[in-house]
C-alpha cells in the first residue's frame, strides 16, 4: 500500500490563478450541500414570511388600505425585503456554530485565503434569499398579488433585494465572529433587525406615523430597499430608492466585510 506517494493523480496541483474565487466557490458549494441536507433550516425564509403576510393582510389590510388586495400589493415587496434581511442572520449563527468545530481548524490549516471560508458561507447562503423570494412570489400570487410593471422590473426588484441582503449578511458574519454563542448572534440580530425592518413603511404608510418615527423611517436604509422593490414591482418612484439601495449596499459591505474578516483572523 502507498498513501501519499504519487500514483495516478498529480502529486500537488501547484499554483493556479483565481485561488480566492475558486476556494470560496468550493466552500459555497459546501454550504449549499448542507442547506439541501437540512431543509428545515429554510423554514425562516419560507413558512415564516407566509404567516406574516397572512396576518398583516387580514389584520391590517382593511384598516390601513381599505382593501386586502391594495394592501397586499404594497406589503408583499416589503415583506420580501424583511424576510431576506432576517434570512442573513442564519449565516452568522451557522458560522458561529461552525467555527468552534474541527472543520474550521482544517480549513485554517490549508493553504487558502483567510477570508475564503467566510466568503464561501455568505455566497452559499444566497440560496436562502432566492428561496425566500421565490416562495413569497408564489404564495403572494395565490393570494392575489400581481406585478403591475413588467417582468424585467420585477426581476430587477428581486435581484436588488437579494443584493442588499447579501451585503447586510456581512454584518451578521461580524456578529457571528464576535459573539460567544449562536444564541447571542440571534439575540443581537433580532435586536438590530426589529427597528430596521419594522421601522419602515412596511405595514403602514410613513405619513401616518408620528414625526419622530417618521424621521427614523426616512433615514433607515431598509426603507429605501422596500420603496425600490415596490417601485419596481407595483409602480411608483424607482430611481431614487434604487440609487439609495445601491449606495447603502456598497457602504455596508465595505464596512462590515473587512471587519468580519479581521474578527475571524483574531478569533482563529
Amino acid at each position: 500500500m502507498t498513501l501519499i506517494a504519487e500514483r495516478t493523480v498529480p502529486a500537488r496541483a501547484g499554483h493556479r490563478p483565481f485561488g480566492l474565487a475558486r476556494h470560496s466557490l468550493a466552500l459555497a458549494r459546501r454550504s449549499l450541500i448542507k442547506t439541501v441536507r437540512t431543509p428545515e433550516q429554510l423554514l425562516d425564509v419560507t413558512l415564516q414570511p407566509v404567516i406574516f403576510v397572512v396576518l398583516f393582510v387580514y389584520l391590517l389590510g382593511g384598516a390601513v388600505a381599505g382593501s386586502t388586495h391594495d394592501y397586499l400589493q404594497q406589503l408583499l415587496p416589503a415583506i420580501m425585503v424583511q424576510t431576506t434581511v432576517f434570512g442573513g442572520m442564519a449565516t452568522g449563527v451557522n458560522l458561529n456554530t461552525d467555527i468552534g468545530k474541527g472543520v474550521f481548524d482544517r480549513f485554517r490549516s490549508l493553504p487558502i485565503g483567510r477570508s475564503a471560508p467566510l466568503i464561501g458561507s455568505v455566497l452559499g447562503d444566497l440560496i436562502r434569499y432566492v428561496v425566500a423570494v421565490v416562495s413569497l412570489l408564489l404564495f403572494g400570487t395565490l393570494m392575489g398579488f400581481r406585478v403591475e410593471t413588467g417582468l424585467l422590473p420585477a426581476l430587477a426588484a428581486c435581484l436588488l433585494v437579494i443584493l442588499f441582503a447579501f451585503c447586510l449578511s456581512w454584518a451578521f458574519v461580524l456578529v457571528g465572529m464576535l459573539a460567544r454563542q449562536p444564541g447571542a448572534v440571534q439575540g443581537i440580530g433580532f435586536l438590530a433587525l426589529f427597528p430596521l425592518t419594522f421601522g419602515t413603511s412596511m405595514i403602514a404608510p410613513a405619513e401616518t406615523l408620528p414625526s419622530w418615527l417618521r424621521s427614523w423611517v426616512e433615514v433607515n436604509p431598509v426603507t429605501h430597499v422596500m420603496n425600490a422593490a415596490r417601485g419596481l414591482m407595483v409602480g411608483g418612484p424607482v430611481a431614487g430608492p434604487v440609487l439609495w439601495t445601491l449606495l447603502w449596499s456598497a457602504l455596508i459591505v465595505a464596512v462590515f466585510a473587512p471587519l468580519a474578516v479581521r474578527a475571524y483572523r483574531r478569533r482563529a
Binding site: 496541483a13 493556479r16 475558486r22
Partner: peptide, 9 residues
Amino acid sequence: LIGRLLNLR
C-alpha cells in the same frame, strides 16, 4: 472539497 481547496482540478 479538500482537493479543490488544494487547487486540484
